[in-house]
Design a binder for these strands. Structure first.
Lengths: 304, 304
DNA sequence: ATGAGGTATAGATTATCTCTATGCATATGC
DNA sequence: GCATATGCATAGAGATAATCTATACCTCAT
C-alpha cells in the first residue's frame, strides 16, 4: 500500500495551521515551491483535493480537514515514539519539562535539583510554576512531561503517583490564645480568623476542607499570594493559618515571630504526588524523577 | 525536531515481525543492504540500539520492542489517514471488505449487489461469510471494513447501526398440529420439537430465547448447518422451527411442502444491523452501504 | 576445515528533494 | 484604470539521499 511521507504530513499540517502556502513553508524552513510541490504530490497520492487555492492564501476542503486531524495524531505519535526510544535508551538524558504548584515548588525543587544533576548529568530540566489546573493542561497538551501537584486530583487522561504525605501545621501569632492551647484540633479553627491563599491554589481548598466550611465563607477580604506572604500576614496579627510541613521544614517561618504547632490527631494534610499524561512516552522518566523527590522528602515528610 | 521516516518504521516493523534482516527486506521488496542501512540510520536517529544482531537473525532489545509497538500504531493510523482521505474524496470507489453472517448473507447480498454496482460503479466489494464473533474479530483487526450482523451485540471497539427488524416466522410440516392452530404464540413452541442451527449461529440463540429455554435444553442431537438445511429437515418431518422473514421472503421454503405462519403478537424477531470498528476511517462508507441495505429491505422487513 | 546462512560495507547508479528564477492570477492602492 | 503587491504554480538545475550490485565478514553446523 502506498503511503504518504511524514514530511508531507508535516508540510500539510503547517499548511492547515497557517492557511497559507508561503507561511507554512516558512515554519517548515523550506521554500514555498518545495511545499507546494509536496502538497500537490500528497493530493495526487490520496486522490483527493485537500486545499482550495484562493487568491489570498488557501483553505481546507472537507477531506483536507479530515486528513489534517489525522495527520496531527500521526505526527504526535511519531514524536512519542522518538521520545519513548530515547527514554528506553538512556533515561533523563535530554530535556525534561517539569511543572510544580506554587506551594510545593520553592520547597521541593531546591532539594531535588542537586540530586538530579548528580544522578542524571545530561538532564536539562525546564521548570514551570503554576496552579494545578494549568499545569495539567500543559501536561495534556504535551507542553510538560510531568507535574508535581497535590493529590487526589481527578483529571481524565492524567495518571498520578503519590510521593509523600505533607502534614498541615497550625500557625498563629505568639500572643494568640490558640498558640498555647493544649491538644490542638481542626475544630478549633472554626472560631478563628483563618487566612487563606488566593483563589486557585489547591492549598486554599485543602485548608477550607480542614475547617469544614464552604469555600467562600472564610476571610474573603484578605488572601495571600504566597505562603511566604501568608506567614507575614499571620506574624502581623491579621489571623491564623495552616502551613504544610514541607514549607515549615524549609524555613518559611524563619525570621518571623510566630507560633508553629502540629495538630494532635488525626494527621491532617495533603498528599504530594506526580502527574503525567496517560500513555506518555516519558512515564518511566517521570517515575525516576518521582523517586528522587520521594527520597528527598524522606527526612521530614511521611513517604507513600 | 528530527523525525524518522515512515519508510524506516515500515522496515523496522517488518524486521520486528520476521526477526531477520533478509526476510524483512524481502517482505518490503528491497534488498537486504538497503534495509540494514535504514535500520542503522533509525538507530542513529533515536540514539538507541533497537536490535541485537545475532548469528542467526536478529532479536529486539527492550527499546526495540517499545519502538516496534509504537511504530505499528503510527503505521496503522497512517493507513487510516489514507483510507479516510479516499473516502472523503469519492466514497466507495475502491476495495471495500464486507462481512455478513450466514443467516443474512444469502438473502441480502443478492439484493444489494446490483444496487451497489449501479450507485458505485468503481466499488470493488469483497465479501466474507462467517459467524458474528469471527466477523467482528476481522473488523477489529482491520481485515474487514464492516459487517452485517444481528443486533444487539456487545463488543468493545465496535460501533453498530440498526437497519431493519426481521420478524421470526413459524415453520412446520403441513401435517403438524401447530400448522393449523389459531393465534400462534411463542409459548406453543415449548411443547414442540424445535430444530435449531448449529452452535455458533446467533440465530440459534435468538430462537432459543424465543422459546424461553436454556441454551442446551432443546434438540441437541440434531442441528442444521444452514437455514436451507433446516427447512428441509422440517419438511422431512423432523420437527418445527423458526425462519426469519428475510429468508422466507427470499424463498427459502420454495419447493418444499411446509407451513409458514407468523406469530400473532408481539412481533418477535431480530434486528439486522451493520457493524464497524470504532474510529474506522471508512465509517461513512459503511453507512452508505447500510443505507443501500435498508433501502433493499424496505419491502418485506420493517426498517429502523 | 568448509560450506551455508545471515549481516555489514563499499561504490555506482538512480531517484527525489530542494533550491532559484520566473510566470500567472487576483486583490489593493493611487 | 493602471500599477503594484501578494501569493501560488511551474521549470530547470543542483544537491541529497535512497537503492542496488558486489563482496567481505562472521557464526554455526557438518
Amino acid at each position: 500500500m502506498h503511503m504518504p511521507t511524514l514530511r508531507q504530513l508535516q508540510f500539510f499540517d503547517a499548511l492547515a495551521r497557517t492557511g497559507s502556502f508561503s507561511r507554512a513553508a516558512e515554519t517548515c524552513h523550506v521554500t514555498q515551491p518545495t511545499l507546494s510541490a509536496a502538497i500537490k504530490e500528497l493530493e495526487a497520492l490520496l486522490q483527493v483535493q485537500l486545499v482550495e487555492r484562493e487568491a489570498r492564501g488557501a483553505s481546507l476542503t472537507h477531506a483536507g480537514e479530515e486528513v489534517a486531524a489525522r495527520a496531527r495524531t500521526v505526527l504526535a505519535e511519531t514524536q512519542d515514539l522518538v521520545a519513548a526510544a530515547h527514554e528506553a535508551g538512556k533515561p533523563l538524558s535530554s530535556a525534561f519539562r517539569l511543572g510544580a504548584i506554587p506551594t510545593v515548588a520553592p520547597y521541593v525543587l531546591p532539594k531535588i535539583l542537586p540530586k538530579l544533576r548528580e544522578a542524571y548529568p545530561d538532564l536539562k530540566l525546564y521548570l514551570r510554576e503554576d496552579m494545578t489546573e494549568r499545569l495539567l493542561e500543559g501536561v495534556r497538551a504535551r507542553e510538560l512531561d510531568a507535574a508535581l501537584i497535590a493529590l487526589p486530583w481527578d483529571a481524565p487522561g492524567i495518571e498520578t503517583e503519590p510521593l509523600a504525605e505533607d502534614e498541615f501545621l497550625f500557625i498563629a501569632p505568639k500572643s494568640h490564645p490558640l498558640a498555647a492551647k493544649n491538644g490542638l484540633d481542626p475544630e478549633d479553627l472554626a472560631e478563628a480568623d483563618v487566612l487563606l491563599l488566593e483563589d486557585g491554589h489547591c492549598l486554599r481548598d485543602h485548608a477550607l476542607s480542614v475547617c469544614s466550611l464552604p469555600t467562600r465563607a472564610k476571610s474573603t477580604e484578605v488572601s495571600a499570594t504566597s505562603l511566604q506572604t501568608l506567614v507575614h500576614m499571620v506574624a502581623g496579627g491579621l489571623g491564623v493559618s495552616l502551613v504544610p510541613r514541607l514549607a515549615a521544614d524549609a524555613g518559611v517561618t524563619a525570621g518571623t515571630d510566630v507560633s508553629l504547632r502540629p495538630f494532635t490527631h488525626p494527621l491532617i494534610g495533603r498528599t504530594i504526588g506526580l502527574a503525567w499524561r496517560a500513555g506518555s512516552p516519558r512515564k518511566g522518566e517521570a517515575r525516576l524523577i518521582g523517586e528522587v523527590v520521594r527520597e528527598s522528602l524522606k527526612g521530614g515528610l511521611v513517604p507513600v
